[in-house]
Structures are given as C-alpha cells and as structure tokens.
Lab assay of single mutants.
Amino acid sequence: GSLMYASIFGNVSAIIQRLYSGTARYHTQMLRVREFIRFHQIPNPLRQRLEEYFQHAWSYTNGIDMNAVLKGFPECLQADICLHLNRSLLQHCKPFRGATKGCLRALAMKFKTTHAPPGDTLVHAGDLLTALYFISRGSIEILRGDVVVAILGKNDIFGEPLNLYARPGKSNGDVRALTYCDLHKIHRDDLLEVLDMYPEFSDHFWSSLEITFNLRDTNMIPGSPGSTELEGGFSRQRKRKLSFRRRTDKDTEQPGEVSALGPGRAGAGPSSRGRPGGPWGESPSSGPSSPESSEDEGPGRSSSPLRLVPFSSPRPPGEPPGGEPLMEDCEKSSDTCNPLSGAFSGVSNIFSFWGDSRGRQYQELPRCPAPTPSLLNIPLSSPGRRPRGDVESRLDALQRQLNRLETRLSADMATVLQLLQRQMTLVPPAYSAVTTPGPGPTSTSPLLPVSPLPTLTLDSLSQVSQFMACEELPPGAPELPQEGPTRRLSLPGQLGALTSQPLHRHGSDPGS
C-alpha cells in the first residue's frame, strides 16, 4: 500500500510541476520586462504597450523563439521550412505564380514574418522605404497627419515599386495596425538579389506586381527641396563636378596662354591676372594647382613670374625650331616645348642647366612650328573623362623618358669634360720664339709635331656638333674642335714665318 501511495504521489506532483513550468517561465520573463521598464524609466503609455505586446506574443508563440529554433537546422532544411511557412503567400499572390521551385525557395529564405499588435506603428512618415510588405492577416491604416487616407487588409501590398527607383524613397505617411496583424516583408536588397539570379522571372514579377498603396513621397523628385535634403551631399558634389568641367572646357578654348597655377587659371584673360583667384576666387580649394602655386600668395601677385606667355621676339635665322618633346602628345598638341628640351639645344645650356634650372624654367623657349593648343594648358582630366590607368601609364612613360634624357646628358657632359682635359694635357705650358741651342744640326726643328685630335665617332658628340652648327654659343662658352686643319689655341699665330727665318745662335768662333 505504501508503494502504491508513493507512486501516485510522485506522478501527481510531476504533472503539477509540468503544468506550472510554463507559468514560471512566463513570470520570469515578465519580471525581466518590468525590470527593464523600471531601469530605463519608460513612461506609462509606452510601458503599457510593452506589457501588452509581451503578453500577446507569449500567448501567440508560447514563449518560443522561432528564429532561434529555425537557425538550429541546416540551410537546406531551413529553405523547406521557410517554404512551408510562406506557402499561403507564395501560392495566392499573383506576382509569385509561375516561378520555379528554386526561385520560390530563394524568396522564402528572404521573407521575414512580423507580428504587430493593435496601435503599433510599422512605418513612420519620413522613414526610408527599405522593404516591401505583404499583409497575411489583420488590417492596417495609413495616416497623413491625423487623416486616415487608406485601410488595407489581407493580401494587400504596400511599399514602393523598387524597379522604378535606384534609391529608396521616404514614406509619405504613417502605417498603423488596427488589429493583430501578420506581415511578410522582404528587404529591398534581398528581393533585387533574387531577381538578379532569376532574370526570366524578374520581368514577370515586375509586370504582375500591383502595389495597393504606394508609400513613396511624390514630392521626392529631382530638383525638389525634399530631394535635395535626401541627396544633399551627392547633389552638391555633382554640381561641383559639372562646374569644374564647364570651366576646364572654357580653358581649352584659349591656347595662347600657358599658366603654371593649374587648370583653373589657364583660361583667365590678361585683365584677371591681378585678381586673387581668377574664376576660382569664390572657392580657392575647388581646383588643383601645381607646386608653384604656393608662391602666388606673396605680395606682387600681378607681377609674379609664374604666369607664362609666349615671347614675341624673333628667332635667329640659324636657330632650330626646338628640341624633341618629352611626351608623344607634344608633337601634336603643344605650341611651347618643355623646359628640359631647351637644355639640349647647345653645349652652353648643358654647362648651365643644373646651376640655374629654376631660373631657366621661365626663360624664352623655342617654339614648335605648329600653332596647336598648349601642352601645359590642357586641363586636368576628371576620373569620369580619362581612366586612372591611362594617366598612370603616361606618367610612367614620361618618367622613363626623363631617365633616358638624364643618362644621355650625363654621358655627353662626361665626354666633353674628358676631351677638354685631354686638350689641356697635350698642350705645353708655354712657348717662346727663341729656342735653346741643340747639340747638333738636327735641332733646327722649332717644335715637335703635334698629332691632331682623333675624329669623334660617338653619337652623342655628333649631336653636340649638330647643335653647335645651329645654335649661337654665348661669349663665355668653350669652343669644341671642328672639322678641318686643327691648330692649338695656345700656339702663336705666325708659326709659318718662324720656319722661314734663320735661327740666331749665340757662340764663340775658336779662330777669332
């Protein structure tokens, strides 16, 4: 009898404990919600809404976190579960008819179910419309201010047509639940991603989709105040780019002037030289400038040598048109050559190039014969006009050509200096018209024969001689050997007369 009593008592207590286990969990969670309300000092109306929603959600799901349970299964099984949970929507909604099984599984994985109690606001006026909503159960109302403009029910759709707008718009009203509602919502990016994977279904979906109420604000059109608020930074940046392009296009129409201050000032006329910023005076940081632009901040801005204009002085008759350009485009679109090309026009420029290279940067340069637009006047290309890779490749080509020119210049200078040193070592320090008596009659020769300089066969020296023939050397430049009979510069000019005159010897006659 005691054994029977113990078994009955144990079973009854276990049954009672299981009955009250759900209630215990409910009270535990309710205590957490109330502690949250007390800690954050939530006001009474919002506090009442929180408690009511918790009670309804507990009775609806029995305190089970559906998302946590669903995430515990593998992905393939999750797709089947989501397809079952959203079967009513996918079967009865017209846009989803005719979709393949794979497309429906992908869509079912992207849908999220939302449960809303009465009085809950789903979308506020001015919120971004980031999702498309399908009503599965219940009814909602749409308000503009305090005026109800629409009441939607089961199988209705609200949001915005995503295929017509590249960016999400703003809501033009509040969406509030009238009863307990079940909503299926899919985010904008998720829907577009699935439709991109199934393009054959995309056309059918957009053609058959009928949005019951379009929440997009109709005033959000390009150029409206609301649109400016939504895309303020983007609009200002776009206007700045367009104004920069218009100014650079105007600059290219004036090829007669070359400016070292950047493309923003290349198009300024002579009357605007004294102004601080020219056409860019209202925004000094709008356009890029070269490193020399920092010198323009000092006094005497109108007389600054940074602004270059072609000189009108005539060229000498024998002067060549100019050196070879550094870039391939210089032959086609440049009416002034790079300062480095002028360094190779003569030997005198070679000796004085490194010492006063900055001073020569603004000297007169030889002109190319074609009066085409200036290379320095070409505006900086924006990322939309020329690819970045093209600019980098041009810079690399320019750097390689500069290296080759520097190597060639160093070799030419070394060769010229070597020839000058050899000339100085071969010439005796001094010569006299009267020579010392020699031991015999073989001493009648006034000077030792001097062998002429070897013929220069280097390509670089031939180019130097060509430049010497075309360029007029300055007075202080050293002379180079030329073709024809060679003669030492330090010898007297009348050596031929010395050989014809008898030598005057000093000596005593033994017979006297």
Rank of each mutant, 00 (worst) to 15 (best):
D174V: 07
M413P: 03
P314C: 09
L426K: 11
T407K: 14
F205H: 01
K185E: 11
K154G: 06
F467C: 08
D335K: 13
M197C: 08
Y165C: 04
E141S: 13
P291A: 12
S374D: 04
C368M: 06
A411V: 08
R358N: 15
S271K: 04
T336A: 11
G507R: 12
L395Q: 05
L209F: 14
S208E: 13
V258A: 14
Q421C: 04
R167S: 08
H506F: 06
G264Y: 13
L261Q: 15
S207Q: 15
R144T: 07
K154P: 10
V416G: 01
S393N: 15
E406Y: 03
D356Y: 05
S227R: 09
S381T: 08
R358G: 12
P446M: 07
G126D: 03
R240F: 07
T372N: 08
L409Y: 03
T252G: 13
Y431H: 08
P305Q: 14
R408Y: 03
V464I: 10
R505W: 04
T442G: 10
T435G: 11
G359P: 15
E200R: 04
G287H: 04
S235V: 12
S445A: 09
A433F: 08
N338K: 05
L419C: 06
D190I: 03
V347N: 05
T457I: 10
P222I: 10
T130H: 14
E253K: 07
F467Y: 13
F134N: 01
D412F: 03
F353A: 08
P314V: 08
G346H: 06
Q401H: 05
R394D: 03
S207V: 06
S432H: 10
T435L: 09
S202I: 10
R301C: 14
S285I: 07
E193L: 06
F213A: 05
Q363I: 05
S445N: 09
P299N: 06
V149T: 04
Y198H: 11
S443W: 14
M327P: 08
S303T: 07
P339E: 11
V347A: 10
G440C: 05
L128I: 07
F158M: 05
N172E: 05
V391K: 05
S345L: 06
S303I: 14
E324Y: 08
F244R: 10
S224T: 12
I378M: 14
F158Q: 02
I221E: 12
L143E: 04
L195Y: 02
L448W: 15
D249S: 11
G159T: 02
P383N: 05
V434I: 12
P383I: 15
P291Q: 15
R422G: 06
E297F: 15
R404I: 04
L375K: 14
L192H: 11
S202V: 11
R358F: 10
T252P: 10
S393C: 04
V175I: 03
T415F: 04
L340S: 11
E392W: 15
L473V: 10
L409E: 03
A414E: 11
G438W: 13
P161L: 02
D459E: 12
G438Y: 06
S224H: 10
V148S: 05
Q237L: 09
D509G: 08
S208M: 12
Q401L: 13
N377D: 01
R367L: 08
V416N: 04
D174P: 01
